[in-house]
Design a protein around this nucleic acid. Structure first.
Lengths: 331, 331
DNA sequence: CCACCGGGGTAATACGTATAACTTGACTCG
DNA sequence: CGAGTCAAGTTATACGTATTACCCCGGTGG
């Protein structure tokens, strides 16, 4: 009734436990005959043997498991980061366990209290500098995604070319003749949003009038913030650059509520290219972020670090996808 | 440099390893004096001791870890199921590892090959009957979410009152005077969608003309399917009941492309109440599914089963949220 | 004065695996 | 013919923890 162990397989095959371990671990070149190897394998499948991972992990001193820390899984972006990381992990016989970071409502303070599995390394995504401390405690190899490369003591960083995404957006809007732009920024104060604000200001400042308003990362928050920002006596912005597709969706709703047509009266751009971007009407012009690739590179970096070889790579390129929410500036 | 073990703590505190284990495991009532217990704890924190989970799991023969199998994490519904399950798990010192089911593109065939952590039980969500076999192999306690309770050999089932959700939708539309209804169903052939189709047909059939068209679970697929279904010579449906908010978003885009106003010319209802439902314009009338609660109850059920006590509970209630995408049937 | 008892701890062991070190017999080569 | 080599295994051990069974000693009742 209890699960068979490698010793059970050994007695069933008439060999020693060590031989079973050698055969099933594919380490028997020239150490075990083909015939007995076949015998062992047959016995293993017949008994339905599955190695006890806990025992193996203890013996090897490694679990081939990484912890991925993300702010929130319900955000499609992070779900895709996970997907990418898990794919690469699986290709290397690694597993990934998730930990929703303290930003969420989870009560667990200690990341490692909730992660029951022993861990080999940590990948942290889009974390504020402060949140890092709680994680770093264990002294595990750490890879940071989408965060300030000059801060923290991560072994590797994986970043998206956010500034370049803003450059493409700004050039697109300037090319369409927009000269009064509203930046709908996120109220969350992380590096990834700071960098966007900075880039946009530097690029647009010299050629256009740029205002900024902030909003929580929800459709409704963005709607009210936009309504407030658009109800000005004169010189209303002709374009809104949003830090996130979610904000852009809110901005569109605000515009429609104010009787403004998109893109005839107002252009709106997003960021991320979530499924949401093509679900709304009109479809959003937005900066596509290859989220899966972020996860893939993050895991690749961690594997490399665990291997002892330092890892570095250029920022992952992003590109603007022009859809129906942007058009020529109104006269 | 290497991580301290319980033995290191023992020598540092001047006691035996057994004592350390007793103190840190909170099993020392009357077996160890307060004074030495304090000594041990001090040494443990000073050395930064963290128990080796692999060793503990081996010793205890249990990992306090559950596997959650979901079709796709990028679907917000399953992300929320995970969130709920993880919360309950954390409250009981359990962990949750994810496995994206074979529906996804992941190459891993064996769920347990990718889940490096040893497992105590499995929770499977919205699985087709066939996909179960691959999972059941290991003979672990199994809880099924959102699946046919009469099939499979799960120890417990957690289901939503999908049929009742359809009843509320049907009554809402009938009350608004709709008599020609299109059911935009999912092409995915799972129990959860079958039950919806059945319920809708039974409820609407006697009072209205009901047609059905199927679509892949994407906005674009739904848009084209709807466009095709709506371009009929006469007796066009006045309402569309969608199996999913994603489909509803596609239906809305199709309507607008055909020059139909929502809800004046056409009513649309969704299912799930994803963030998408309030991001689109008009906001969707949809059946709210408490996804987190599904995850919570699933984990609760698994914990109960692991505890040896069978688990059963009534279906989780759902309710229709009336927003702006439904209105009186046009004359 | 001895048997007993209970508080305060310790020694020993097992969990299941991977692997280094050793054994054994057959065969080869000088 | 003896030393050496090689294939084919086996024995023994360690990973770090939790727990059972034991030990020691001071006090206490008879």
């Amino acid at each position: 009734m209890t699960r068979p162990t490698s010793r059970d397989v050994a007695t069933a095959a008439g060999v020693s436990q060590a031989t079973v371990s050698l055969v099933l671990g594919d380490k028997w070149r020239g150490r075990v005959s083909e015939r007995t190897a076949a015998l062992v394998r047959e016995a293993a499948t017949r008994l339905g043997y599955r190695p006890n991972l806990a025992a193996r992990n203890l013996r090897l001193g490694s679990t081939r498991t990484a912890l991925l820390v993300v702010p929130a899984l319900t955000n499609e972006f992070f779900a895709r980061v996970y997907t990418g990381a898990a794919r690469i992990a699986a290709e290397h016989g690694f597993g990934v366990v998730l930990y929703p970071s303290p930003d969420g409502t989870g009560p667990a303070r200690d990341p490692f209290a909730s992660a029951r599995a022993a861990l080999d390394g940590v990948i942290a995504s889009s974390m504020a500098a402060g949140a890092l401390d709680a994680i770093g405690g264990a002294g595990l190899p750490l890879v940071m995604l989408d965060s300030d490369p000059t801060a923290g003591r991560a072994a590797a960083h994986v970043n998206l070319a956010m500034a370049d995404g803003m450059r493409q957006t700004a050039e697109h809007l300037l090319g369409l003749g927009h000269r009064r732009v509203l930046h709908l920024a996120s109220a969350v104060d992380t590096w990834t949003f700071d960098i966007r604000a900075e880039a946009l200001a530097a690029l647009l400042g010299p050629h256009a009038e740029l205002r900024t308003t902030r909003s929580t990362l929800t459709v409704d928050g963005a709607r009210t913030a936009t309504e407030r920002a658009l109800t000005v006596p004169h010189d209303r912005p002709t374009a809104i650059v949003c830090d996130d597709d979610i904000l852009a969706a809110g901005a569109c709703k605000a515009a429609r509520r104010l009787g403004l047509r998109i893109p005839e009266d107002l252009s709106v751009t997003g960021f991320d290219d979530l499924a949401l971007a093509t679900a709304v009407d009109p479809e959003l012009t937005t900066v596509h972020l290859p989220a899966e690739r972020v996860g893939e590179q993050g895991m690749t970096a961690l594997l490399s670090v665990l291997d002892g070889t330092p890892w570095t790579a250029p920022d992952i390129p992003v590109h603007l996808v022009v859809r129906d929410s942007t058009g020529p500036a109104p006269a």
